[in-house]
Nucleic acid binder design. Structure first.
Lengths: 194, 194
DNA sequence: CTGGGAATTCAACGGCTGTAGAATTCAACG
DNA sequence: CGTTGAATTCTACAGCCGTTGAATTCCCAG
């Protein structure tokens, strides 16, 4: 059983493919992004991508891993107590989008609208990992509705600031936005029943 | 100069093509929708569409006309005064989406994310027709930022309720949602400077 | 009844897509 | 140095797309 053959390589090129895939999926969304463009971005032959990841779907799933771990950040946001939770949540949300991890989120949100696969993926993940944890954290009625309302405000903010790029939101500072939007989130999370 | 030849027809089939186009663009978005599927939905040969509307872009522009006229509904919403404006706005927004006109909006929001053409179209229209009118209506500082914040909340609501179809939002009543979200909108519009 | 012209269909082209499989390169080993 | 087998590339296929221009249908005027 000879342990021979070409050894080094795939670690490097796998990473470069994933990087180019994130860029491309973020810029174009799942459908418009093509394996040929991703391969060109990675300086690689297009056939290498199905070879490593099985299919276009495979490289998408490998590329858009959720860039933050809810099991970590949710307790960290809750730790200082409920007061100011809304503002902290908005600030954390904007910091994540403005960080390098934002490209993964852009790929996800762009793809969610065009691909049922991506929509299902995100809905399952958010329901299980995020809404679940938030539901047990806030000890109030209708936790799913409350968490969903929070999501509407945050998703809308991401859509207009990062996807459509509305000028007034693009040029506003994180602190300013947190000051405006934080209280809305806070109310969705803590306001007693309507 | 003989006025002869086949006369009736196009009015009917033009309408049927536009209807099928709205359905298809709403279900698939601009990119995924195909002329062949639209034609099949209208019971018509695919070549008729470029023939009547010039191109795929042409039938899209003809199909997704904004289904409500801001010049009409904005004064109507403002007329009872500023108190309760937030709730009225949310209610009107949801009524429009739940009406037959909602399919045009779905086509628009689905397409905005995949097509630069649609994004540019919507951004220009909203900036000019909606934000402008709202800005003069509310006599406060930073009218564009305020109107954009309103838009984030409404767009996010539409995304999660009608595009991703999150259960908690899909099954909530219009009144319930207006009760939760209305105050946020109200604050964005009328809260004195932060 | 007959011809003309609009309405509609047919057939096809060129381009792009994801993907499969054969062919080739090349670093590491005996 | 030659063999080996993984890493990579080449070639090609089948399918769908928007669009085109010629062919056909069919209503209506004369």
């Amino acid at each position: 059983m000879p342990r021979t053959g070409r050894r080094p390589g795939p670690a490097r090129t796998r990473e470069r493919i994933l990087g180019a895939a994130r860029t491309q999926f973020g810029r174009e969304g799942y459908d418009k992004a093509t394996l040929r463009e991703i391969a060109a971005g990675a300086g690689v032959d297009p056939a290498l991508i199905p070879h490593y990841f099985g299919s276009k779907e495979g490289v998408f799933l490998a590329a858009v891993e959720f860039p933050v771990d809810p099991a970590l950040f949710i307790p960290r946001l809750l730790e200082p107590g409920v007061e100011g939770l809304g503002e902290r949540l908005v600030t954390f949300f904007l910091e994540t989008w403005d960080s390098p991890a934002g490209s993964s989120l852009l790929a996800l949100i762009r793809s969610v609208v065009s691909s049922d696969l991506a929509a299902e993926l995100l809905r399952e993940f958010v329901t299980r990992e995020v809404l679940g944890r938030l539901a047990v954290a806030i000890q109030l009625d209708q936790p799913q509705l409350r968490a969903s309302l929070v999501a509407t405000q945050l998703v809308g903010l991401a859509m207009l600031r990062y996807v459509i790029k509305v000028e007034a939101l693009k040029s506003a500072s994180r602190e300013e936005l947190a000051g405006w939007i934080g209280p809305s989130i806070q109310r969705y999370l803590t306001e007693p029943v309507v």
